[in-house]
Simulated scan of single mutants.
Amino acid sequence: PGMAQAAIVIERLTKILPGIAPIKPEATRVTQRPIPRDGLSAIGPVPGLDGYYLMVTHSGATLSPALGAMAADEILTGIERQELADFRPARFFT
């Protein structure tokens, strides 16, 4: 059923993006989407693991461009983004 559903998605998508018409699904995978136990994203350094930056979110498909940009900014500059303050993994370690 996964391949059939993928083919339907591609067929529908060709109405918006006709140039992808030649694309055919090669494989499908079924998995559970990650979501932290409190329902909020977990983004930032993990306490006790130097240099380990975590990003777990249920909203990755819609938020990945913004979250990726903010995470990259934090990692590269070392300056915490205020927008991510409520989503720190540290909340699970206190």
Results as ranks from 00 to 15, higher is better:
P1A: 14
P1Y: 08
P1F: 06
G2C: 05
G2I: 07
M3L: 11
M3C: 00
A4P: 00
A4Q: 10
A6K: 05
A7G: 02
A7Q: 10
I8F: 02
V9L: 10
V9W: 07
V9D: 06
E11W: 05
E11P: 01
L13C: 03
T14V: 04
K15N: 03
L17Y: 06
P18A: 09
P18C: 07
P18D: 03
P18Q: 09
I20D: 09
A21N: 04
A21S: 09
K24Y: 00
K24L: 04
P25R: 10
P25W: 04
E26D: 12
E26H: 10
T28K: 12
T28A: 11
T28D: 07
V30D: 11
T31G: 11
Q32T: 12
Q32I: 08
Q32K: 13
Q32G: 12
R33V: 14
P34E: 01
I35F: 03
P36V: 13
P36D: 14
R37D: 15
R37K: 15
D38N: 15
D38Y: 12
D38Q: 13
G39W: 06
L40M: 15
L40W: 09
L40C: 13
S41P: 01
S41I: 01
S41W: 02
A42P: 00
I43F: 07
I43P: 02
G44M: 04
P45Q: 12
V46W: 00
P47Y: 03
P47L: 04
G48V: 05
G48E: 04
D50I: 04
G51Y: 03
G51E: 07
G51R: 14
G51T: 08
Y53S: 03
Y53Q: 02
Y53H: 09
Y53V: 01
L54S: 13
M55H: 06
V56Y: 11
V56S: 14
V56F: 08
T57G: 06
T57P: 00
G60L: 05
G60V: 03
A61D: 02
A61N: 07
A61H: 08
T62E: 01
T62Q: 09
L63Q: 10
S64Y: 13
S64Q: 12
S64A: 15
S64P: 02
P65G: 10
A66R: 05
L67Y: 11
L67S: 02
L67C: 04
G68K: 09
A71D: 00
A72G: 13
D73L: 11
D73S: 15
E74V: 06
E74Q: 13
L76M: 08
T77Y: 11
T77L: 08
G78M: 04
G78Y: 01
G78W: 02
E80N: 11
E80R: 15
Q82S: 01
Q82K: 09
E83F: 00
L84W: 06
L84K: 10
A85T: 12
A85V: 10
D86T: 06
D86C: 00
D86L: 05
D86I: 01
D86H: 06
F87D: 03
F87R: 05
F87I: 03
F87A: 04
F87H: 07
F87T: 04
R88H: 03
R88A: 02
P89A: 11
P89R: 14
A90M: 07
R91W: 02
R91I: 06
T94L: 07
T94P: 05
T94V: 09
T94K: 14
